[in-house]
Simulated assay, not measured.
Amino acid sequence: MLNSFRLFATIVSFTVCVPALAQQRPEVGQPPAILPLESEAAPRLVAYPPLADPLARGVVIIQFKTENFRVMPVFGQDAVKVSPRIGHLHVTIDDWRGTWAHTSLDPVIVVGLAPGDHKIRLELADPSHKILATESVAVTVPDVKASGAHRH
């Protein structure tokens, strides 16, 4: 049993040490392990039209994807320097003065909009809230009471 534990401890130590070896200073002429921010491609945001089935019930679900950018709940000046780029989405409905921060890759979900046409603006924001990319999605919310659709 003791020999099995020693073998396990040796394997765990080796596994933990391998990443440390990979982070050593690169050889002369080799690229760094992480690209400087200036070398990264510009962040990109792709927003898709709202899902039709939920929209018929008055629920707006907007899926999106990002490129060269990771969405996560990180804020502050120090996080601006992280590579690859990280940040969050700013979500604004119509021309409302308020906005909220969306900090995950989950779809943006909006419930309770009045029937009619709306514009939902999604903005990629770095951890200091600087806007890096913007997409708008046009949404027409049906009158679910008039159509007799089941609300959920």
Results as ranks from 00 to 15, higher is better:
A41W: 15
Q30M: 13
A149L: 04
I109S: 04
P107L: 04
S128W: 09
R85Q: 04
K119D: 05
R121H: 03
M72W: 10
P49C: 12
I11L: 13
L35N: 13
I86P: 00
T92Q: 11
R70M: 09
A42W: 15
G98T: 13
T15C: 11
S13L: 13
F69W: 06
Q24F: 11
I109P: 00
R57G: 04
V60S: 01
E38G: 09
D106H: 10
I93G: 01
Q24E: 12
A22Q: 14
T134Q: 06
V137C: 00
G148E: 04
Q30K: 14
D126K: 07
D78K: 13
V141R: 01
G112D: 03
E38I: 15
M72F: 08
K81H: 10
T140P: 00
D143F: 02
L113P: 01
L132S: 01
L122H: 03
E135G: 00
H118D: 01
L45T: 11
G76H: 06
V18Q: 09
D143M: 03
L124C: 00
L51P: 10
Q63L: 11
A146R: 08
M1R: 13
E123P: 00
H90I: 05
Q63R: 14
I109M: 08
F75Y: 12
S136C: 05
V59W: 09
G148D: 05
V12Q: 07
R121M: 05
K65E: 12
V71Y: 05
D94E: 05
I120M: 00
K130Q: 08
P127K: 03
L122K: 03
G98V: 12
V46I: 15
P43M: 13
H102S: 00
S4V: 13
S104R: 08
Y48C: 13
K65M: 11
D94L: 02
G148S: 04
T92M: 10
D53I: 14
P32A: 14
A125M: 05
S104Q: 07
Q23I: 11
V141S: 00
M72G: 02
D126F: 04
L124R: 04
A41C: 14
P127I: 02
A52K: 15
P107Q: 06
S104N: 04
F5D: 12
R121Y: 03
N3H: 14
K130V: 08
V141T: 00
I61R: 06
A133S: 06
V91K: 07
L7W: 15
H150T: 10
L21S: 06
V18R: 09
Q24D: 10
G116R: 08
I93A: 01
F14Y: 14
M72L: 09
E123G: 00
L7I: 14
P26M: 06
V137S: 00
